[in-house]
Simulated scan of single mutants.
Amino acid sequence: MAETFTALQVSEPEPKIFSRQIIQRSIDDLPAGELLVRVRYSSLNYKDALSASGHPGVTRQFPHTPGIDAAGEVVSCSDGRFAPGAAVIVTSYDLGMETDGGFGQYIRVPSAWALPLPAGLSLRSSMIFGTAGLTAALALQALQQQGVAAGSPVLVTGATGAVGSLAVLLLSRAGYAVTAASGKPEQADWLRQLGAQDVIDRAAAVAGADKPLLKPRWAGVVDGVGGATLAAALKACRYDGVVACYGLVGSPELSLNVYPFILRGVRLIGIDSAECPMSRRQQAWQLLADAASQLPLDQLVTEIGLKQLEDYLRAMLAGQSHGRVLIRL
């Protein structure tokens, strides 16, 4: 009899009707791939919540196990890239989208998707970061590479979200004067504990989005909202300002004139973690590993088991979550 394991499975019993349940699955039913990993930790991301609710822009084939993040030990690797027992991280690519993901105790994936767990990280701490941490690290590197100096004023939008809260942590540690924008005033003290020097309401971050330009304020911006928030941030950048955009939780549309670019030399940089080349991915993970011991990660995370996941999925879809949710497999 094939070995079984516990996993969250999303099914489509009727067209566009989706259900979620924790089941026992067979390892033999996992997709093809050189690398079999025993998952110890995963994390909850907005993309996971979309997949778990049947969003066709993320997942089209059901039944399916979401989870774009996974960290664990190698069980077997048919191409010899990893030795059995090696600790590895697998994030993004197609994991948790059409390939069964980290909300199960085992995954089977191409070995090229995995990287060795960097020194300085445990399996647990790597998943406190997860794809959100990778994205925040890539945004920080973009600002640094584009010459945004430490000490400069930087805006983080969507600051209570997974990427936003980690961006506040990483940017403040790197010496930036961070202003956090959020629609959750009750989390203002928490954002200050993470390192924000100032916290503003998201309405203030959007104010003036309809104007050609705004008073120059930000040397850098990390934006996960898009829409009018991104437009206002671009218009409020100082000369040579840099905006790193990774998300569209507010809107995928961008109504904007060219003035920020041709009058102030503002640069808009897209941040993608899903298909990020492995060399750049490794550099970002090393940045996270180097920072981990100096960051108050436990202030950022709520740790749960699979049985508690349903409540947190619902909260995330309702816009009621903040920080990171770590899933212990």
Rank of each mutant, 00 (worst) to 15 (best):
D100H: 10
A203P: 00
S125C: 09
Q9H: 04
S42W: 00
A7F: 06
P296A: 05
A7W: 08
G120W: 00
R40F: 01
I89R: 00
R314E: 14
P153G: 07
W190H: 11
S42L: 02
S78T: 13
S126W: 05
R38F: 02
F62Y: 14
F82S: 07
R81Y: 04
H322W: 13
G67A: 01
V178M: 12
A83E: 14
Q294H: 15
A49W: 02
A196N: 08
S76F: 04
G147F: 11
D198C: 12
F62T: 07
L30M: 10
E275N: 15
E98F: 04
G195S: 06
E14I: 08
F129Q: 02
A207E: 15
A139W: 01
L138D: 01
E73Q: 11
S125V: 01
E253S: 12
V88L: 03
D240C: 11
S182L: 10
V58N: 03
L50Q: 08
G195L: 02
A231Y: 05
S11V: 08
W113G: 05
L230H: 06
A289V: 08
Q286T: 10
A83P: 12
D223R: 12
F18N: 04
M1P: 02
R25S: 15
T4V: 11
D100K: 00
T135A: 05
S182P: 06
G195M: 03
L171W: 03
V109D: 02
W190M: 11
R328K: 14
A284P: 12
M278H: 06
T131R: 04
G305P: 13
R20M: 12
Q286A: 02
K307L: 14
P118D: 01
Q187S: 13
G270N: 10
V10D: 07
P110S: 00
P153L: 06
E73N: 10
A2K: 09
I68E: 00
L138G: 05
E253P: 02
L256I: 15
A71F: 05
V148W: 06
L171T: 05
S125H: 11
I68F: 03
L313S: 09
P260N: 12
Q9A: 11
V225P: 01
L36R: 05
S321E: 09
A209L: 01
G85L: 06
